[in-house]
């Protein structure tokens, strides 16, 4: 045997088929297979029992979602409006984690990005905004270590919903609930609902004055 060419199709799971090979049924997550012997031409192996993933899988919004929730405890200094996240907890489910350490790193990074989105990062349109090409990280503020509860950030990765649940995307969902959690905590602390982001120190000072 000198060569093999396979074809498969994915719709959040792979197509599957069986191929009669060497007197046995070869099963694989492919739907077409061709083999070459020596210098000969590739010859198609006729498949049996092909199975394609259901079109229903295209509704990934309902069948393939990772869920995440966040709780935060904040402290706001009355005189200055300085906000400190004292403690935080995020919990999520993403199916089978292929590399759990990387998944946790993404979740911690997502928390940092959520903090930046809620409290720091501003991109105003028009003149004077970043579109003028002059902005850098001195003006576009992103979360640094000191903006985060580095030693009081607990993140829990739940086991897969079912033993055979496939891996699901989770890189972005881990930042999403951080923002409403912080905004709700600010409402709880100040009685004020903020309708636009970021909620900066000076805005907080303004509602506490």
């Amino acid at each position: 045997m000198t060569g093999a060419v396979a074809h498969s199709f994915s719709r959040w799971e792979w197509s599957r088929a069986r191929f009669p090979l060497f007197g046995e049924q070869y099963r694989a997550e492919i739907d077409a297979l061709a083999l070459r012997r020596g210098n000969g031409k590739f010859e198609r192996i006729n498949r049996v029992r092909v199975k394609f993933p259901p079109t229903d899988n295209n509704r990934i919004g309902t069948s393939y979602t990772s869920m995440c929730g966040t709780l935060v405890r904040i402290e706001i200094e009355r005189a200055t409006g300085t906000l400190r996240i004292a403690k935080a907890y995020s919990v999520f489910e993403c199916g089978k984690a292929l590399v759990p350490e990387v998944v946790m790193g993404q979740a911690q990074g997502g928390f940092a990005m959520g903090v930046g989105y809620a409290l720091l990062e501003t991109l105003p349109p028009f003149e004077g905004g970043p579109g003028n090409g002059q902005w850098n990280l001195g003006q576009y503020l992103v979360a640094r270590g000191s903006d985060l509860p580095l030693h009081d950030l607990e993140i829990e990765m739940l086991p897969p919903l079912t033993p055979d649940e496939p891996p699901k995307g989770m890189a972005e969902v881990v930042m999403v609930p951080v923002v409403p959690a912080i905004l709700n905590a600010i409402f709880d602390a100040t009685g004020r609902r903020f309708q636009s982001l970021p909620v900066t120190t000076s805005l907080l000072k303004g509602v506490l004055a």
Binding site: G105, M113, R144, G145, S146
Partner: peptide, 23 residues
């Protein structure tokens, strides 16, 4: 120790893992 590490590393920006694992 924790505050010493935090102070020392604070000038550096990371956008992937959110600093926790570095610390």
């Amino acid at each position: 120790l924790e505050s010493t590490i935090a102070e020392a590393l604070d000038g550096h920006i990371c956008r992937c893992t959110g600093y926790v694992k570095y610390h």
